[in-house]
């Protein structure tokens, strides 16, 4: 394996959790709900994922537990914002704080406990393509899942009727309601999907990337995922670009620091944030259309009866 291949592999592992969480949040926001609790759902996924994996000895059980934990957190958020029409910003922030705290309790007796990561799946033939093969087609299942999510969500939003209805709820809840769509039910499922994705992204952190538990291990990735959604103008492919840009620069600046560049390390660490935002903003400015978010984003909807 060459150095370049090794770098690319680490880029993929750094980018995948961001991408999975961002795609989930993208669907939530397309339905008109702003869930700022990604970080909280993600870390609950990380904690429950590794606890379940160690307890059962099964990686798959860990992943399932992480997804369910993310969805449970999302359900709390949905109960507050849809059921009680609470302010979405406040509820999302509370969810993050709650998740950071609760995950510490859940994982308390597992701090530092190691387990083997989740194995890679080699795709026959494709993985033998020189250079690209081992990088793209000899990966863990999460990476494949993230590719599938981008393609699937993009297809769902633009090509299916259900996707059209979901977008309609995000554009104007009142109009969608007037046409007879169950806005709250649709938003509920979108929020659950977002929670499942955030939980999955969390599982990736504790089961593959590190693979052990420390409290606060999401380290702001949920917030990056949120930012990527906005700067990607709510387009799945652009979100993938943003996630990989961020992951790529994160890894590159590490290597640059290792190579002894005479730049303050704090500045280097800030680079991924700066460059990702600058690039995505530039794309947003250059390309017209799609730049505006869903018109009904963050506005609670209460049907009258």
């Amino acid at each position: 394996m060459t150095l370049l291949e090794a770098i690319l592999l680490t880029v993929i592992t750094a980018s995948t959790p961001l991408l999975i969480a961002a795609i989930g949040e993208l669907v939530v926001e397309k339905s008109g709900v702003l869930n700022l609790g990604v970080e909280g759902m993600m870390i609950m996924g990380a904690a429950c994922g590794i606890v379940a994996a160690i307890a059962t000895g099964s990686g798959a059980a860990g992943v399932a537990a992480a997804v369910l934990a993310g969805m449970a957190m999302a359900a709390i958020f949905a109960a507050l914002t849809l059921g009680l029409a609470a302010n979405q910003v406040a509820a999302g922030l509370a969810l993050t704080i709650f998740g950071l705290g609760l995950s510490g309790v859940v994982g308390a007796s597992f701090v530092g406990a190691q387990r083997a990561g989740i194995g890679k799946i080699e795709i026959p033939l494709l993985s033998e393509i020189p250079f690209l093969g081992p990088v793209l087609f000899n990966q863990d299942p999460f990476v494949y899942a993230s590719f599938a999510l981008v393609a699937g969500v993009s297809w769902f939003l633009t090509r299916t009727r259900a996707g059209l209805v979901l977008r309609a709820c995000g554009e104007s809840a009142a109009s969608a309601h007037a046409l007879g769509y169950k806005v709250l039910r649709i938003r509920f499922f979108a929020i659950l999907f977002g929670g499942a994705c955030a939980g999955l992204a969390g599982a990736y952190l504790s089961l593959v990337l590190t693979p052990f538990w420390t409290s606060g291990m999401t380290a702001g990735r949920g917030w990056i995922a949120l930012a990527i959604v906005v700067f990607a103008s709510w387009l799945p492919w652009r979100a993938a670009l943003g996630a990989y840009l961020f992951g790529g620069i994160t890894i590159l600046q590490l290597h640059a620091q290792g190579a002894g560049f005479r730049v303050p390390p704090q500045l280097m660490s800030a680079l991924p944030y700066l460059i990702t935002i600058v690039v995505l903003v530039l794309i947003m400015r250059l390309r017209r259309g799609g730049a505006a978010g869903p018109a009904g984003l963050g506005i609670p909807f209460v049907p009258d009866r």
Partner: peptide
């Protein structure tokens, strides 16, 4: 008040 979706 039209029940149309502006961005669609």
């Amino acid at each position: 008040h039209f029940s149309l979706f502006e961005a669609m």
